[in-house]
Design a protein around this nucleic acid. Sequence first.
DNA 1: GAATATATACGAATTGTTTCGTATTAAGCA
DNA 2: TGCTTAATACGAAACAATTCGTATATATTC
Lengths: 131, 131
Amino acid sequence: MARQPIKPTDSELQILNVLWANGPQTVRQVNDDINSKLAPETKETGYTTTLKLMQIMADKGLVTRDTSQRTHIYKSDISESDTQQNLLETFVNTTFKGSAMSLVMQALGNHKASKEELDQIKQLINKLENQ
Amino acid sequence: MARQPIKPTDSELQILNVLWANGPQTVRQVNDDINSKLAPETKETGYTTTLKLMQIMADKGLVTRDTSQRTHIYKSDISESDTQQNLLETFVNTTFKGSAMSLVMQALGNHKASKEELDQIKQLINKLENQ
DNA sequence: GAATATATACGAATTGTTTCGTATTAAGCA
DNA sequence: TGCTTAATACGAAACAATTCGTATATATTC
């Protein structure tokens, strides 16, 4: 069953990343997690800010929550790879005029990949060639 | 000389893409170009909207303009590949938690690449390996 | 040279996202 | 039980991006 394009905002993605990494959680846990890894010069995110965002995300269907207890437990309702795939597509279209290949070339060329990483890619290419 | 991160918005990028593709142009030309390739169900962008955006971009230094004639000529003041590189980095950080490799793998895996494209990538990998 | 077409300038409305203050309610505890 | 702590709900402020209306000036044309 196809869904329409899932396009979380940056803040929403930040929250989803926490839920994907650590599983179902409370607003408090998500908020603490986000504030625990702040970039320097960055202001903390207030608790009610995170709460509000997660409520909105629940409305949009990005997350579901268990409200049987007073403290709600939120979990992501969309998969990480589906979301990445969607965002990737949008990004390729806007920034690389639809050319996934030129994105790959740029990413590869710029990133100092290790031997292991390059091997991994070669392996994937082999698999793609033998299809 | 390093610049600070160049991060045009989506609308700005749309305009930059026209300027990169077709060279220095008037607001009218850019606006027409954008409206000539509208996705279905998409509303046209008004002339003054594009004008305003390009004026803002001039303020920000994304474009420069020749105002010696009544009809101003705008040209991009930032390079396409630098901009792509910047946006790519931001995108990798937010959507792929900083892992350029996992982005490359996703992009490769999902995109149905032609033999030529795969060859091109293999060539690049070879070059990277011999460094 | 008057009417028309087309350009810029620019304030303000609109829309979307994020942040925050505060009310209310439930738990925990002295 | 009453006090403190911690949770949700929610309206609205603050910000940012985009869109638009309109004033004004300059060309163009008849």
